[in-house]
Write a protein that binds this DNA or RNA. Structure first.
Lengths: 335, 335
DNA sequence: GTGAAAGCGCTAACAC
DNA sequence: GTGTTAGCGCTTTCAC
């Protein structure tokens, strides 16, 4: 029934009364080889008639060129980031005809991660780390072993490597100014802890505050691990203080949304009594109430550019080490 | 620099002073072949010393067994569904050591879709359609060509094919009862149109209403294409009617969230003046305010089971045509 | 212009 | 127990 009876180029050759080589020449449009039109026509017809499709595995073997690139991400990655970026990656690899192999980071495994195994066994030509944690040891390993990879993440990593990131932190001063222009006095920050997972968001906030001549009041800051319950607790605590903030920069979409939720549940009016701006995008920001202001990331482009960058590296071309993409402050109803 | 100087099993054989076949036997743990322990040790050592990794492409070629399965989805699936399901798929394919090739449905292409090309060229052993539109013609094509595939979607398709779906529609009566028990009188429905993209949600609603002895009031129904603006317009219209619903079943997460937003923006109190329950999951349901009641889908399991099912089909084993997974009504603050 | 033949790295039937 | 050998389906050099 399911007899996937494989048609090979040999079959096509036989059918068309030519040699296997000729079939290959024609199908690959090999230059420096001129084929007589009628031969070509005959072969093409045989291809159609037999419904022949070249076996990419065999082809890949001969060519010694992996057909796929790996995209690795963490299991808990926020969906919206990833899918949009993936679309970009897809389009960015299209012309090189790489397929996308999806991989999840498994923290347990060190240097025997799936993607290393796959790379070593020729299944992957390179790797994109999309919103994935990537240890310095791993970067070291990848680099010394000459494995082409690029990291794509909103925030620029200080570790030296090929990366695509955004300038979204540079919009924080504009956020502060926005708050100030609306007459806000007590500007706070909520975001993830610990600091090593934090990627400079809080630092950038402090700097922006200083640049605006504002001191950072520890009482207006709340950090928490990335976990709904803990986040809720610390944010509620922050908002119930008698010297609570009247404006909040949220370090991530989840922090932003939970801040909003906490405020509303405490009967604080947003944006009247509390303004919120979030770092990062979500496709829900436009449809929560009130809609969420945010520094939005160029997710699609991040994917596209990282794919391009990886393709170049895979060809051995040197590339700029990092690309910084513009993000955008979108003011909605929450601020 | 980047001289990926390939180590082959031949190199290992030479290094260990054995034949290539022996290396293969050892590495593949071939049964019916007993290897002397010291030979095995020598080979293993050579493997380690040379840092040898079998070339999976060559292996795949010999074995004529694709190494990957394709997961295709629509480009606009930016929702929570997909990633969770992917995780399940990942884990469900793990033991068969298939990798996951991600593909996007491109509506333009008919039978020359990427996944068909990939399948034909032996890059894919089978296909999972996850929350992807799948035309009857395509099902027909896949079936007649013996291409193993399974569809995974919350709703069971009436077209005959292998599918993994959920019983979430069967929770609608419980939703109605929940509304009634809270004293609600005017139960409405908002959801996607047109009806052919609708997958029986509205139908199920009508039936459930009838079963509870309730008539469906056309004035309590709103449908709209899947587009924030249009959805907002029709829902606002619905809610501003003087005979507006006091309870709403939303046909999708987006409809649910937009309903919530519309209600709040119109100063309707949720859940006091309007109760909402949504069909489908989102990782934001718990952190919007008020948190959203929903019939939650077993997303991870849906992925896992579909992967298992596909694996079986790829082995040629007959499987039940469809698996219905249990979903769960989760009452939160919006109802 | 086209064909014969070698060989990519692997597996497996068969020989010893 | 282990080696020899014959391909898998393709590309490509070299001959004609």
């Amino acid at each position: 029934m399911n007899e996937k009876k494989s048609i090979s180029s040999r079959d096509v050759a036989r059918e068309a009364g030519v040699s296997q080589a000729t079939v290959s020449y024609i199908l690959n449009d090999v230059k420096n080889v001129r084929i007589k039109p009628e031969t070509r026509a005959a072969v093409l017809e045989a291809v159609k008639k037999l419904n022949y499709h070249p076996d990419e595995i065999a082809r890949g073997m001969k060519l010694k060129k992996p057909m796929s690139i790996g995209v690795v991400t963490d299991r808990n990655v926020t969906n919206f980031y990833f899918m949009k970026t993936l679309e970009g990656i897809r389009d960015g690899t299209q012309k090189n005809d790489y397929s996308i192999t999806l991989l999840f980071n498994k923290p347990e495994e060190i240097a025997e991660a799936d993607y290393i195994r796959y790379y070593n066994s020729n299944r992957l030509g390179g790797i994109i780390f999309a919103f994935a944690s990537l240890s310095d040891e791993m970067v070291e390993y990848l680099t010394t072993n000459g494995i082409p990879f690029v990291k794509v993440d909103p925030v620029q990593s200080s570790t030296d490597m090929c990366q695509v990131c955004t300038d979204h932190l540079s919009h924080i001063p504009a956020v502060i100014k926005h708050f100030l222009s609306r007459g806000m006095k007590r500007i706070g920050y909520v975001g993830p802890s610990p600091l090593n997972e934090e990627h400079g968001r809080f630092e950038a906030f402090k700097e922006a505050m200083a640049d605006s001549g504002l001191a950072v009041d520890e009482g207006l800051i709340a950090t928490s691990p990335f976990n709904d319950e803990e986040m809720t607790v610390v944010i509620k605590k922050l908002l119930s203080s008698d010297k609570r903030p009247d404006a909040l920069l949220a370090g991530s979409p989840r922090f932003g949304l939970i801040s909003l939720r906490c405020a509303l549940s405490m009967k604080l009016k947003v944006p009247e009594q509390l303004k919120i701006v979030t770092l990062g995008s979500s496709n829900f920001f436009g449809i929560v109430y009130p809609s969420m202001s945010a520094v939005e990331l160029p997710l699609y482009d991040m994917g596209f550019r990282s794919a391009e960058m990886l393709s170049e590296r895979m060809k051995g071309n040197e590339m700029p080490r990092s690309i910084v993409l513009p993000s955008e402050l979108v003011i909605r109803d929450s601020s």
